[in-house]
Design a protein around this nucleic acid. Structure first.
Lengths: 167, 167
DNA sequence: TTCATGTTGTTATAATATAACATAACACTA
DNA sequence: TAGTGTTATGTTATATTATAACAACATGAA
């Protein structure tokens, strides 16, 4: 029972995950209301499924979950919801995994870096000012105008370290 | 005529690209000899095709090039060469583009960051110590053991800025 | 030459993602 | 509240990216 947000940290195994999900959905609702966009039932459900844990989820996993719900869905159903959620900053895409993970502080223009544990599969979203400024500085130096970042660091998190020798 | 290496910079349009390719192939050969691995004709050709310019290239583009060569190739042919080149640090994979780009300073353990211009499609490979140490510091702080990095910054390079209003 | 290993060929298929058009839901207004 | 434009979803087909599995060939060492 701890770590109300995954922000900057890997959540411990016993954290109150129901709280993460509830808060994420609540924030998404208020955020969409504020922006005047519609968090439909389908989109809300997809977001909820993505938040099932702190691991990035693939589009076809989501599709399978929807099917288990009894929702007869096809790929475009999922991808359109994902596009909406991405476009409104409610989720992030993890390119190195072709997968999607919830964002715990919705907002279009925040930067983000991900540490991804190959042991437990969890992803921690960071917003490290030093990393961001180091990148921004380099961009300035070479006259590059940044539009998007994809910063994905893979390895082993503190909880998994030592639990198994390697894999 | 300038910029013998793409390192840290976007190459200008008129740089001596033949030189880039020749040097990359030469370095690859000596690197493979040193490591005792075989840069076969096919692998060398794939590497050469990747170095055709400073833009990341897709696997199926390479396949098409090989076919134009008269080489009747199938996807595994290309992917196996790519695996070899990746495994020996001769190319990098750009996850956000599902594409591959030549590495100009072969070596397995170097870190790398990419600035990718959506105007000209070129990718500049950086090795910025400040970015790397900012990431390493954060990893240390949260007890994360880094294995792989994928740092891809998309935007507009200095050569493309101003050339066209937007797209 | 023979064997072991590594490389490439070949066929099939998996996994991820989008195009294009039809239908349904919603929300505004007359 | 019926009509209308817009947004969202359903549906079918297909594009794009990547790998599995096994056969054939090449290379180098004994």
């Amino acid at each position: 029972m701890s770590l109300p947000k995954q922000h900057q940290q890997f959540p411990s195994a016993d954290h109150d995950h129901q709280h993460c999900v509830a808060q994420a959905l609540h924030e998404a609702e208020s955020y969409c209301r504020k922006r005047g966009v519609r968090l439909t039932k389908l989109r809300r459900r997809v977001l909820e499924l993505i938040w099932a844990n702190h691991r990035p989820v693939g589009a076809y996993d989501l599709l399978q979950q929807l099917t288990l719900d009894g929702h007869k869905a096809a790929p475009p159903t999922v991808y359109r919801s994902l596009d909406f959620l991405l476009g409104n900053g409610l989720i992030h895409r993890i390119n190195s995994l072709n997968a999607f993970v919830g964002c715990d502080h919705p907002g279009l223009d925040h930067t983000a870096q991900f540490f991804i544990c190959r042991g437990c599969g969890q992803a921690a979203e960071l917003d490290d000012a030093k990393i961001e400024s180091a990148i921004a500085d380099h961009a300035t130096r070479i006259g590059f105008s940044i539009e998007r970042r994809s910063i994905e660091i893979t390895g082993i998190c503190t909880h998994c370290e030592g639990e198994h020798s390697d894999a």
